[in-house]
Amino acid sequence: MSVDKKAIVTPNSWASLRRYTDARIGLGRSGVSQPTEPQLEFQQAHARARDAVHIPLDIDQLEQQLSEQGLESLRLHSQATDRAVYLQRPDKGRRLDAQSGALLKQIHERHGEKDATIVIADGLSSTAVQRHAAVVAAAIDRELDAEGLSRTPVCIVQQGRVAVGDEVGELLGSRMVILLVGERPGLSSPDSLGIYYTWNPRVGLTDAYRNCISNIRTAGISAEDATGRLMWLVRESRKRRLSGVALKDESGEADALEGTGRGNFLLD
């Protein structure tokens, strides 16, 4: 006698709570294991994320997007010649190639020092940079302008990691560097952008000297919220002449975060 199909998989009545989160809750179970449907959905998402890591940044399109936002930009390249080198040699992704270094020195000599430089690095998700970087850069640039701070052109670094911003800032003689980078893609978030902020950037700084605002994407932290947090860091760091762990992010109240507004229903 065959088993009724309905009796094989145990569904979870609380699956509807997925309206509060993208997390894979309420999947149900076959025995104690994940049922076939969510199991294959996971495999599909993993396949897409794997493919996404290797799609190159369309730099022409990015320059076009920046230009539409009224931002001038420069093309730079790290010492990582291609994606394969980038993945295995982070040291090369943290430094500029010779040509890029020479270009920045020229610009420095010609235009002198500026307050701030926005750097855009492809990092591990060209999708994130393509989708969000131009809009976020423009929002930041407007705020910097409103503070009366001078800016260099936006520097786009191909095959770049976070620390490459330090070299860009040092060569340009900028007092602060704001680096936008594609974060490692997740299954549900292949397009997450991060911002790293450094006061007095120079080659050799560690993460302890940087402040990070992570997870900027449509379903994460908005460009406006991220810019607000960043500008708090910028203002504080100018006062205190430092960045990193010594500069705690105390901007606003926690309520400023976006959310469902529902609160912790477990306490109802």
Partner: peptide
């Protein structure tokens, strides 16, 4: 949870 949303966190805690 990507925005530390209380309901989103609570949903995963319950699960």
């Amino acid at each position: 949870h990507p925005t530390d949303d209380p309901a989103g966190v609570a949903a995963s805690v319950l699960d």
